[in-house]
């Protein structure tokens, strides 16, 4: 299989006023064409940092991050990113936000096609009634869906998604998950997804990378034994439950390790 992205002995530290902060340590894995990688690990461990090296915003301190065999030099439209902070443009309306990528030289399309794409995603994301509203009038979950629509609209081959469904209610979340599976089925994308939900990771991913508390190291890489296309019925399968308890255990261990790292705070007088 064709290797799309590679982490090769990657470490990254930040220089902070309090000294060097090791955030990613000796991480190696490959992401093949058509893979769906889910990354899971405790909050603050370095997942976003790991992803932003592949997105092109952060350079590894040591080791190499390759995309299509070449070291990542910077961001590019072939790697779509859905940011944890959404980053919807406040000065553009909902529709203009979705259209943004399609107005750029890199992926310019005729106006009619752009309108059609916008309407398509407005509908899918349940934002049609707000097409001409500014983001200040949207709820957190709506902003998140807007960020997703904007990224999907330019049809990147590789999607980097940083907790893309974190702000959504359970119902919308599962809609969005199914929508993502459908998009993958028709457009054949490669995905790296960061999530805190074990169920989401198993339901969507072909491989799950469990990372340790900071600095993020690879704790275990788990192959998910379900093929695509998938539907919600796999969540009833015994393998699903087994995998879930296994991964939960791993994540819980790391969560405890992280708690132990932190300075104990006493609230007793």
């Amino acid at each position: 299989m064709n290797k799309r992205a590679q982490f090769d002995k990657v470490s990254l530290s930040f220089e902070t006023p309090k000294g060097r902060l090791k955030v990613v340590e000796d991480v190696s894995y490959d992401i093949n064409d058509g893979d769906f990688i889910a990354v899971i690990g405790p909050s603050g461990c370095g997942k976003t940092t790991m992803m932003s090296m592949l997105a092109g915003f952060q350079k590894p301190t040591t080791g190499k991050v390759l995309f299509d065999g070449r070291p990542v030099a910077g961001p590019g439209p072939e790697r779509g990113v859905i940011f944890q902070e959404y980053g919807v443009f406040p000065w553009l309306t909902v529709k203009q936000n979705i259209a943004f990528g399609l107005t750029l030289n890199a992926n310019r399309v005729p106006t009619a096609e752009r309108d059609a794409t916008c309407d398509h995603y407005l509908g899918l994301m349940g934002l049609s009634d707000f097409a001409n509203s500014y983001p200040k009038h949207l709820s957190g979950g709506m902003r998140q869906r807007l960020a997703i629509a904007r990224a999907y609209a330019v049809k990147p081959q590789f999607l980097l998604m940083d907790e893309p469904f974190g702000a959504l209610d359970a119902q919308t979340r599962s809609n969005m998950q199914n929508l993502l599976l459908k998009v993958l089925e028709t457009e054949g994308k490669t995905v790296m997804l960061i999530t805190h939900s074990v169920e989401e990771a198993i339901y969507l991913a072909s491989r799950i990378v469990v990372v340790t508390a900071r600095p993020a190291r690879i704790k275990q890489i788990i192959d998910v034994p379900f093929g695509y296309p998938r539907d919600e019925s796999i969540q009833e399968r015994p393998e699903f439950a087994e995998l879930r308890s296994h991964i939960r255990q791993l994540v819980m261990d790391e969560y405890r390790a992280q708690q132990a790292q932190m300075r104990p705070v006493s609230f007793s007088e």
């Binding site: 961001p75 439209p77 779509g80 443009f89 553009l92 943004f100 107005t103 030289n105």
Partner: peptide, 25 residues
């Protein structure tokens, strides 16, 4: 820098970032 990053990942070049992101901001 978030909005500039978003624009970059959508494929904006330097001129487009300036015109479509930095000026409105």
């Amino acid at each position: 820098p978030l909005y500039i990053r978003v624009a970059q990942t959508l494929g904006a070049n330097q001129a487009e970032i300036f015109r479509k992101v930095i000026i409105p901001l």
